[in-house]
Computed example of a mutant assay.
Amino acid sequence: MKTPKRIQPLIDEGLIDEVIRPLMSGKEAAVYLVRCGEVIRCAKVYKEASQRSFKKAVQYQEGRKVRSSRRARAMEKGSGFGRKQAEESWQHAEVDALYKLTEAGVRVPAPYGCFDGILLMELILDEQGDVAPRLNDIELTAEQARRDHKRMMQNILRMLSVGLVHGDLSEFNVLQEPQGPVIIDLPQVVDAAANNNAKWMLERDVNNMTQYYAQFAPELATTQYAKEIWALFEAGNLSPDTDLTGVFHAVEQAADVAGVLDEINAVFEEMQERKARQQTTKNQD
């Protein structure tokens, strides 16, 4: 195929030998299958801000740190230089998260570096050696659903144990390899300690995944992993190997009506966006 202009510099530098074919095009990036020596990998080409359809970026970027004070000021002012720095910060958030999560034992694609807005990473395969499918495209047995749900909750816990929340986790952002689920798409990952939206984002991530797996194992719908995980985090009792139960006993306290309404509105908006994405997927099929 014809080499995309964005990838050509990486071929010139010898980082990529050949672009095999497009793999997918999402809301923030286009992904290609590429050959690097004898190995087939993915090249994720991030779209410019004007081309991205991912919304509410401000919610996700809250609390992100920029080492240079000059860059931070430029980003706040929204100058040309500042917008460029914001783009680089957005892209490197995923790269940094992939390295951090791989080290923490979370199953994500192994990263091989980011070059001029192009992330090279591991290609996830299925049992036949083909590109692994998204969860949205497969059916599971009840036993598989229970097993993979447990692994997913452990992955979410391990993410939080190193201070990160995915923020946009659903069956559209998880691939299925023979050993179980692989979490992908992390440019919107949030700092749990610095982002005020982290709690409800984690709850949404957990609830999205539980809702998916409960299609095949209905008893999973009654679990309360989100509340259990966050309570352990707030109490400082969370570790990568914490044995989760899915059971949570809330402490009685005065209701925060405004907070509850905000969460309801946020969940409603996400449901509408999710329905729109599902409809788009059906139309494409």
Score class of each variant (00 low, 15 high):
Met75Glu: 11
Ala235Val: 06
Leu33Met: 10
Met152Ser: 03
Lys27Met: 10
Gln91His: 09
Glu38Trp: 00
Ala255Ile: 14
Asp130Trp: 00
Val45Gly: 06
Asn197Phe: 10
Glu219Tyr: 07
Lys65Ala: 12
Val165Cys: 08
Leu33Ser: 04
Ala194Glu: 14
Asp262Gln: 15
Val39Pro: 00
Ser50Pro: 00
Arg146Gly: 14
Glu143Ala: 14
Leu261Asn: 11
Val19Thr: 08
Arg146Lys: 10
Asp285Ile: 06
Glu94Phe: 04
Leu98Ser: 05
Ser239Tyr: 13
Asp168Pro: 04
Lys150Met: 06
Leu220Trp: 07
Val66Ala: 11
Trp90Glu: 14
Lys55Pro: 09
Arg158Pro: 03
Thr141Tyr: 02
Asn197Gln: 14
Gln188Ser: 14
Thr245Asn: 08
Asp168Met: 06
Tyr212Ile: 07
Asn208Thr: 02
Gly63Val: 09
Arg21Asp: 14
His149Ser: 13
Asp126Gln: 03
Val131Glu: 10
His92Ala: 01
Ile40Thr: 12
Ala198Lys: 06
Lys2Cys: 00
Gly236Gln: 09
Gly163Thr: 05
Glu38Asn: 14
Val34Met: 09
Val174Ser: 10
Asn196Ile: 01
Trp90Lys: 05
Cys114Phe: 03
Gln91Ser: 01
Asp205Gly: 08
Cys42Thr: 15
Val34Thr: 10
Ala193Met: 09
Ala235Lys: 13
Leu220His: 08
Pro4Arg: 11
Leu119Ile: 06
Glu171Phe: 05
Pro218Met: 10
Lys44Leu: 11
Gln179Asp: 13
Leu98Thr: 04
Lys27His: 07
Phe54Asp: 15
Ile7Asp: 04
Gln278Ile: 13
Val165Trp: 05
Pro178Leu: 07
Ala145Val: 04
Asn283Val: 03
Glu88Ala: 12
His92Ile: 01
Phe216Tyr: 15
Ile184Pro: 11
Leu15Tyr: 10
Leu101Ser: 02
Asn196Glu: 08
Lys282Gly: 00
Leu23Asp: 03
Phe81Ser: 12
